[in-house]
Amino acid sequence: MRSKPFTLSCARATFYDRDMSDKYDITFTVNGDKRTIRVEPRRSLADALREDCGLTGTHLGCEHGVCGACTVLIDDQPVRSCLMFAVQAEGTRVRTVEGLAIGDKLHPLQQAFWDHHGLQCGFCTPGFLMLAVGILERRPDIAEPELREALSSNLCRCTGYQNILKSVLAAAAEMRK
């Protein structure tokens, strides 16, 4: 390994004369923990979370940005982690499904999905939860038609979406309290 740490304080964070298989050390915050991992440039953020951070709650359903199962929050914004390279996450604050609950206490969205049967096989659930967290944190009062449109970002094959919408509406009401 010939790579040296990628630091943003470095004025010229460019890399010359490297082999393609060279790996970079990147440092970012995941669910509040600062982590440094060593990755190839081609490593997606999703793969880095799953394989280098051991956070397998982020799922891969299509790897081309349509299904949304891999949705995570980067600096509180929902993004498709299959469409971002891990090296691009240097210095960011990443939140995944594993960071939602505080100890035994589920996040209001997790609780609402449980109460309202907002999941069946559960594969799309982490992506929907993170998408919904990203939406509700910015717009706690979002109206149903707009919410429906925003939640149309992700695919679910089991629920027909009805209970997902119901769950998110219930969580929104709870989070406004």
Binding site: R50, E51, G54, L55, T56, G57, T58, H59, L60, T96, V97, E98, L100, A101, L106, Q110, F113, W114, D115, H117, L119, G122, F123, T125, P126, L129
Partner: peptide, 24 residues
């Protein structure tokens, strides 16, 4: 009764183990 599912908490926490999660 519409009992909430016992299957759910682990899935909601992102701790469900799907096959690819076992490929480490």
């Amino acid at each position: 009764r519409p009992l909430p599912r016992y299957e759910d908490p682990v899935l909601l926490r992102g701790r469900g183990r799907y096959t690819a999660d076992l490929a480490q």
